[in-house]
């Protein structure tokens, strides 16, 4: 009897450890997700109310009407992620290998922007990119912006804003994966007559892949759903799918379409991640992360 109960208790133990996280996931993720799935299949209008009718056509209508914004979201998020990778890799490399006693201070600088609200930081970019500001003037001087051209309220501004806002999410995972690297591997590579470039290409980059993977996901996923940058730095011609969802929920009160749009975005991102993981090799990722 007692043996059974002991075995029971043993087998229950991991569940007890997982319980807080599980309950959290169920209450704040699974239930709302399920609720939204239900909402996305309703039909009606704000006055008459919305009722479950298995209205799958909402999905089709949403894709047909808003495919431009979907593609734009993916495009902006992808460009911003690539920009972040290009900026963050040298930075993380420097932090991991060359920063010496400045390292902690520099890391603090990387996360410093988080002390200020996201929206405020984006509003600051409104002022930086402003038509009569220093940046726009200099770019006009060197001919990158035409005489009557502008920076603010263009896709350049929106992508810049996204890239800026998500940069720390790229730097930190990259830094972690580079910092953990065994330096002796580089020595071994040079001992085997690899040039520094080859050693970088064959040793450093492959070992940084988990960081690149984590960093690009952390940038790309929230960037896809972002609407603050497009709202503050862009125009209606730069609106992303997040702006549409926000307007559907709060202005037009069209909950089913808003929910359907959210699910489509989720699906697109999941498929994207699966492909991306396949390209980088998920087994390598798991092993490297372990």
């Amino acid at each position: 009897m007692s043996a059974i109960s002991l075995r029971w208790r043993r087998s229950l133990l991991p569940w007890w450890f997982m319980a807080p996280a599980l309950i959290w996931l169920i209450v704040f993720f699974a239930v709302p997700l399920f609720n939204q799935l239900n909402v996305s299949l309703m039909s009606g209008n704000a006055d008459a109310g919305y009722h479950s009718t298995w209205a799958f056509h909402t999905y089709w209508d949403a894709i047909r009407t808003y495919h431009v914004q979907f593609l734009r979201s993916l495009e902006y998020a992808a460009i911003a992620t690539v920009i972040d990778l290009i900026i963050a890799f040298p930075l993380a490399y420097f932090l991991a290998f060359r920063a010496g006693r400045w390292r902690n201070f520099l890391l603090l600088l990387v996360i410093m922007p988080f002390f200020v609200s996201y929206v405020l930081r984006t509003v600051a970019w409104q002022l930086i990119l402003n038509d009569n500001g220093w940046v726009a003037d200099r770019l006009r001087d060197i001919g990158l912006v035409s005489q009557h051209g502008r920076l603010l309220a263009t896709s350049t501004a929106v992508i810049t804003g996204i890239a800026y806002n998500f940069l720390p999410f790229m730097v930190l995972p990259l830094y972690v994966s580079l910092e953990r690297m065994d330096r002796r591997l580089l020595e071994a590579a040079t001992d085997l007559y690899a040039s520094r470039v080859t050693a970088f290409r064959k040793v450093t980059v492959p070992l940084a892949i988990p960081g690149i993977f984590a960093g690009s996901l952390l940038c790309f996923i929230p960037a896809c759903g972002d609407y603050v940058n497009a709202a503050l730095l862009g125009t209606s011609r730069q609106y992303m799918i997040g702006n549409v969802v926000q307007s559907k929920y709060l202005d037009v009160l069209d909950y089913p379409t808003a929910a359907a749009l959210s699910f489509i975005l989720m699906l697109l991102i999941l498929v994207g991640i699966a492909l991306y993981g396949r390209v980088l090799g998920s087994r390598n990722l798991m092993e490297a992360a372990a």
Binding site: D47, T235, D251, D254
Partner: peptide
Amino acid sequence: SSGDELLCNQAMAKVTGA
């Protein structure tokens, strides 16, 4: 009427791109 308001909201949301 609120139904007409809704129509206008939807039309304007299309114009403003959201």
